[in-house]
Nucleic acid binder design. Structure first.
Length: 111
DNA sequence: AGAGTGACTGGCT
DNA sequence: GAGCCAGCCACTC
């Protein structure tokens, strides 16, 4: 299997920049990297994050703050526990105060 | 080559 | 907030 990396690496790099206790979305990453592929591919990129040691994929949720990828962490509660451990409250698979915790590189990095 | 699928999103109801 | 629909692109069969 050839290396898909390309934008994969870029996605991982951005995700690694997400501060502890903050979250971001697939669409935000996609727009920031100007991925023609779209948000779906960001999710697919995260699918390969298991090869990466330092990719906090649990900080990446969908646009409404739902932990859509929790099932891919080897368990339905792993992702939530990781977030709770960082001070991010999760209720009914949704991030509490999601809008306030949202981290947008285009904004936080002041571009 | 065509159809199905998905860790998504925006718009509308 | 929640549900439905259409657009989106890479990947698999």
């Amino acid at each position: 299997m050839p290396e898909q990396r390309d934008y994969f690496e870029e996605v991982y790099e951005v995700v690694r920049l997400v501060p502890k206790g903050r979250v971001t979305t697939y669409g935000t990453i996609a727009r920031y990297l100007s991925l023609r592929a779209g948000a779906r591919m960001v999710g697919w990129a995260m699918n390969g994050c298991h090869n990466r040691p330092d990719v906090p994929a649990h900080r990446v949720v969908n646009r409404i703050g739902v932990l859509s990828g929790k099932h891919f962490f080897g368990g339905p509660t792993i992702m939530q526990q990781l977030l709770e451990d960082e001070g991010v409250h999760v209720e009914d698979d949704r991030v509490v105060d999601f809008k306030k915790l949202l981290w947008d590189p285009a904004v936080e990095l002041d571009l």
